[in-house]
Write a protein that binds this DNA or RNA. Structure first.
Lengths: 273, 273
DNA sequence: CGCCTGGTTGACGCTATTCAAAAGTCGTGG
DNA sequence: CCACGACTTTTGAATAGCGTCAACCAGGCG
């Protein structure tokens, strides 16, 4: 069953990294899953990958760049349901229905690999551990949606934005796309607003407050977390919902992570409980 | 594998109804799934069924009454992630992790049946169609969470409340708990607020506007949808995301449903497009 | 060089929150 | 049957948070 797949460097493949982190599957199962996918397709920035309500015939995984799932209201208001990062499954529900309730769009230039649904389904039917792996991926998605509900319903704009930055940092970390305290946030403030349920104007203002207070720096779509403890505290962030094996202490200055050079203590500020 | 289960009347069992509606599984598979569950446990109103962050050892299904999944922020703010109605799975993620990210609480007196996770897992491993059924249940949950995100992020209080009423009506309908245009809404306005991300005071005000305009009537926790078309239009409601086979035309006065006596035309108002 | 997209800023308005209190409602016990 | 207390619904007034509108600025690209 194991066959050649289209990934050159297994280690740097974000989908494989995420698969291992979330599902805990072993090497053979990983190779089997990956073997179902074809070569990548490239998309320019801000294109529909799957238009809303349009049936999709294959399951898509983002391997490079940023994308999103979105819902549109009739009058044009848009809610970004999930920001999709490298390694994320774009449309898991294609495993159950051929028509998704949402659209998938690229936010930057990006590349997507796809697998035929029937191929995945037979694989799932024959290999129970792979079925379990997909179940975990879907449930991880579920957990993220639940947390976002809490953010949208009960957190202030400031808390919500801080929460988003914490989440993105950890998610990017688990696919090897974040530094010790910096990461790239290559989307517009309007798109951030569509994610948080805010207007771009308000996103801008809140962002500046966080900047002026020295919690983060943000210039040219590069974010640096200057005060991990404060950011985490303001967000009320507890990353366990990510179920991604990411080391949650990455956001805690009191618990530097083994295997990482001690974070420059000169810049990180002490916790202020 | 088929064995006696604890349901007296298969037809009126809401979990079975939902299972059939969402997953489309046949009689044998349904019986197998049901056979994994024990007799019901009863809960008083407003109790924790699974406290937040506490590990659960079994999968729970609500068969009577209302409950919810919720998340608490440190300062006491609560977001109800999902309202659970008869037939709903309380904690699907127990299939992947033993510790849920949210709590489950009863909102009314209710009864819950449970199945051991290991029993379900072996069943899933051996019977692919049952694995597929659980996948669909989970993805249906996912779809609902996504829609709620759009509600929380981009709908006004009024739109959101209208949307909630539409959703509850259809969901109750698929488990046989709603009339042609009435249903019972046995929770407090504070709990509605925790669902919509609003304060109870504001829920009260919005509710009254809808009442005064004759869109709904609402007294003693009984809701009557007086003007289906207006309610649906104001909510921007499209029930396909429910994936429950519910007849979406139940909310459209122009398409009365076969098999149902013509809704009393004297009371239903004409569409006012 | 001018256009276009995206970021920034200010003034103003509306939606929903907050605080507070009155008026039901319901279960319980006398 | 009535009285009591706890919870829920309702109402009002004041406020805060975020949205809207509009203008201006900066950078990239044809």
């Amino acid at each position: 069953m194991m066959m050649q797949n289209h990934f050159d460097s297994a280690v740097s493949n974000p989908f494989e990294m995420r698969l291992r982190a979330v599902t805990g599957v072993d090497g053979v199962a990983v190779a089997n899953i990956l073997s179902a996918f074809g070569p990548g397709r490239d998309f320019r920035s801000k294109r529909d990958i799957v238009p809303e309500g349009k049936p999709a015939e294959s399951l898509l995984v983002l391997t490079e760049g940023w994308a999103c799932r979105y819902r549109l209201l009739r009058d044009g208001r848009r809610q970004i349901i999930t920001l999709l990062l490298p390694g994320d499954v774009c449309n898991p529900d294609v495993l159950a229905w051929d028509r998704a309730d949402y659209g998938v769009a690229s936010l930057t230039a990006c590349t997507v690999i796809d697998a035929s649904v029937t191929a995945l389904r037979t694989m799932i039917l024959r290999m129970p551990d792979i079925a379990q792996a997909w179940m975990k991926l879907i449930l991880a998605d579920n957990a993220m949606l639940a947390e976002h509900n809490a953010c949208l319903g009960r957190r202030s704009a400031r808390e919500h934005l801080a929460h988003l930055l914490c989440e993105l940092f950890l998610r990017l970390k688990t696919v090897g796309r974040a530094d010790v305290r910096n990461f790239s946030l290559p989307i517009t403030q309007e798109e951030i607003g569509d994610t948080l349920g805010l207007t771009p104007v308000h996103v801008n203002r809140v962002l500046q407050v966080l900047r002026n207070e020295g919690v983060i720096s943000f210039q040219g779509h590069k974010v640096t977390i200057l005060n991990r403890d404060q950011l985490r505290a303001e967000a009320g962030f507890d990353g366990r919902y990510l179920h991604s094996g990411a080391d949650l202490r990455l956001l805690d200055s009191r618990a530097p992570v083994a295997g990482v050079a001690a974070p420059s203590a000169a810049h990180s500020q002490p916790a202020r409980t």
